[in-house]
Every structure is written in structure tokens, then in C-alpha cells.
Computed example of a mutant assay.
Amino acid sequence: MPQPLPQPLARHRTLVLSGSLRTGAVTTRVAHAAVAQDGPAHEVVLATGLDQLPLFNEDLDTDPAPPGVAALRAQVTSAGSLLVLSPVNNASISAALKNALDWLSRPRDDSPLAGKPATGLVVGYHSHGAEDHLETILRATGARTTPAPTPVLSPRATDGDRVTTAVTQALAALHTA
């Protein structure tokens, strides 16, 4: 009797949320470095549309959700895990990222973040605890946080090797989460 053919391993899909909306930002370069880690066993894709989200307002949190919100929720739902990146803005995460996480934390009983493995990295000269803020916010949204081995990247230290090492370690932690 012929043996069944082995099934290919399913690719783990990580969605990268970048809290920087500026095209040339260091955080955006880190996001692209993460996407470059895409491989046979681990698909890494960059979330789109954070710049299209309205400011969170419960009056707008309707069914159906605003189009940009629905699109981002679908991206998160289709991912197995999240790599969340943010510049350090005034000792915390960016307003754009916080707004996206506020939208993604709804509906409260069926959030696309609930139970989703997530890890965060912040980029700044001095983090002032922004990495702790990011982890606290992710936990509050219901995400299952996995600490990044290197949660803070200095813009001065974002040469290729350091960034590659940081995102590779973060993605590996997510892949095994």
C-alpha cells in the first residue's frame, strides 16, 4: 500500500504593525527588516491602513465597522501572531499605534487581539519605559504577550546586523509562542 505524501508545514503568519506613519522613519525601516525575514515556515507581512483609521470614538464603533477599521481587523484576524513596533513619542508609544490598538480591542467580547500572541519593539534614543507601556496596552487588549529579547532599539544602533538580530529573535519568540 502506498504511503501518504507528507503534508507541507503550514506557514506561521506574523503581521507587523508599525506605529510610525512616516515613510522614511527608523521604525518603518525596522518593519521592512521584519518583512524581509519572510521565509518558507514563517510568513511576515506589513499591516496597511493605520493612516486611514478615524480617531477611536465609540459612536463610530458600529456594525459594520468603518471600512478602514474592518480592513485592519481582518488583517489581524488572518495572522497567527503580531509584531508591534512603535517609535518612542513623549515617553510612550505613538498616537497612531495606540489608536489602532484601541480599534482592534473591540468588540470587547470578540476582539481580533484576544489570545493573539504578540510582542513589541520600540525605537527611540531613550525609551523612558515605552516598551512597558506597549506591553501593558497589549495585555489590556487581551493579546497574549511574548517578551521580545531586545524590546528597545536605539536609532543610533539600527545598523543592519542589530536590527536583523532583534527582529529575528522577536519573530522566533512569536513562532514558538
Rank of each mutant, 00 (worst) to 15 (best):
A33Y: 06
A33N: 04
A34F: 04
A36H: 09
A36T: 12
A36Y: 03
P40H: 05
A41F: 05
H42C: 12
E43H: 13
V44C: 09
A47R: 07
L50V: 11
Q52I: 01
L55T: 14
L55A: 12
F56Y: 15
P64T: 14
P67I: 13
A71P: 02
A74F: 03
Q75D: 07
V76H: 06
S78P: 00
A79C: 04
S86Q: 09
N89A: 12
N90T: 12
S92G: 15
L97A: 10
L97S: 08
N99K: 04
A100G: 13
D102Q: 06
W103R: 10
W103T: 13
S105K: 12
R108V: 14
D110P: 01
P112L: 08
L113T: 12
L113M: 13
A114N: 11
A114D: 09
G115V: 14
P117A: 14
T119F: 02
V122S: 13
V123Q: 06
V123P: 03
G124C: 05
Y125V: 15
H128I: 00
G129S: 06
G129V: 12
G129A: 11
A130H: 07
E131D: 14
D132W: 06
L134N: 10
I137M: 07
G142S: 11
G142R: 13
A143T: 07
R144A: 15
R144C: 01
T146P: 01
P147C: 06
T150G: 00
T150M: 12
P151V: 15
L153K: 08
L153M: 09
S154G: 14
A157C: 04
D161W: 03
T164I: 02
T164E: 11
V167R: 10
